[in-house]
């Protein structure tokens, strides 16, 4: 059981999202940084789709109402358990009554808190993710607030081999970003596959897509990131019919300033698509703060597949090795 003592708005329960409900206009939703949430669950031996808490705004304070094991991944937000500093991407035992305090991140944007067993909220359309726009999933379809008490599913009882916990090599170190010689330090490099309307853009716009930085504006959130940069123009603007879209689609509205649709993005749209950020790099966007810059690197389907396999291998190996660091215990966890 976790009790929320203090939280700004917009922090909510998420899992890996909804699949199979697009015929109702329901998109994937779920964690923005799926790799961080999956890594937290891997450290704990949870179901890979177990629900955790996505933390987007800080400071956050929670109290563990019972003995449990938790994992904290994603943004490095100087977490302290009863005052003791935790390393980033770390799992550790907590005793009943201990308090976990998270400060605004020094690196990254979104942190993920998972507990052994996963957060127990009802599944809605195959997922425990909070869909705030339509008010369903998660905890009553809303963001968390002080006073909320969250239960965890019962987990097989275990203790960590090391009292000091165990960690995961953060995804930013474990998973190589694409090569981009012109990228400045701190810029987020994303692999992009050309989309159906790429050829409709003029040569200067095509070149600008790959060669110039794209600033993440303040109008960036779980629905999408609005970018600022060179205005992208089509040779001959034609109306598009409304069509299904996926997280990662880079739409270009008539202003020429691109929008990347993300987890809570629309499931359909009518703007031309110049490219699509590959699935394996979407987590990088989740950690790119407003004011920072993105770089796009052209990518083939084969390269995308290789990147996707690297993510799966990272998470799979982490899960296996973390298993050696858990010992069965007589006590009941969660």
């Amino acid at each position: 059981m976790i009790e929320i003592l203090e939280t700004p708005p917009l922090n909510a329960i998420q899992d890996l999202g909804r699949l199979g409900y697009r015929c109702h206009g329901v998109g994937r939703g779920g964690a923005m940084d799926r790799v961080a949430l999956a890594a937290a669950n891997a450290l704990l031996g949870n179901d890979e789709n177990a629900a955790g808490i996505e933390l987007q705004l800080f400071p956050v304070r929670v109290r563990f109402a019972g003995d449990t094991v938790f994992a904290l991944t994603g943004a490095d937000c100087e977490a302290r358990l009863d005052g003791r500093l935790l390393p980033p991407w770390w799992a550790m035992s907590a005793q009943a009554g201990q308090e976990l305090v998270l400060s605004p991140p020094r690196q990254g944007l979104r942190a993920y808190l998972a507990v052994a067993g996963g957060i127990d909220v009802p599944e809605v359309m195959g997922s425990r993710s909070t869909q705030m726009r339509d008010g369903f999933g998660g905890l009553d379809g809303r963001a968390l607030a002080a006073g909320d008490r969250l239960a965890a599913f019962p987990a097989p009882a275990f203790a960590l081999r090391d009292g000091a916990g165990l960690g995961a090599l953060p995804a930013s170190l474990a998973l190589a970003a694409a090569d981009c010689p012109q990228a400045q330090p701190g810029e987020t490099v994303l692999r992009v596959i050309q989309a159906a309307e790429y050829e409709q853009f003029d040569a200067a716009s095509q070149a600008a897509l790959w060669q110039t930085p794209w600033k993440v504006t303040a109008q960036s959130n779980r629905q999408g990131y609005r970018l600022a940069g060179v205005a992208l123009q089509r040779l001959e603007p034609v109306e598009m019919r409304s069509h299904g879209i996926v997280p990662g689609v880079i739409q270009v509205p008539p202003s020429g300033q691109p929008i990347i649709q993300l987890a809570d993005g629309n499931s359909a749209g009518g703007y031309p698509k110049i490219g699509v950020v590959i699935e394996a790099d979407l987590w990088r966007i989740a950690q790119a703060a407003p004011g920072s810059a993105l770089r796009f690197v052209s990518c083939t389907l084969e390269e995308a597949r290789t990147a996707e396999r690297a993510v799966a291998a990272y998470l799979g190996t982490l899960r296996r090795l973390a298993g050696y660091c858990r010992l069965p215990s007589l006590g009941k966890v969660a």
């Binding site: 003791r84 935790l86 009292g163 000091a164 916990g165 165990l166 090795l321 973390a322």
Partner: peptide
């Protein structure tokens, strides 16, 4: 402090604590 993680030992993507 006692139990403070002062280093890590990496085996693949897994980090074990040095406390």
């Amino acid at each position: 402090e006692a139990g403070e993680v002062v280093g890590t030992i990496a085996a693949g993507p897994l980090l074990r604590p040095v406390a």
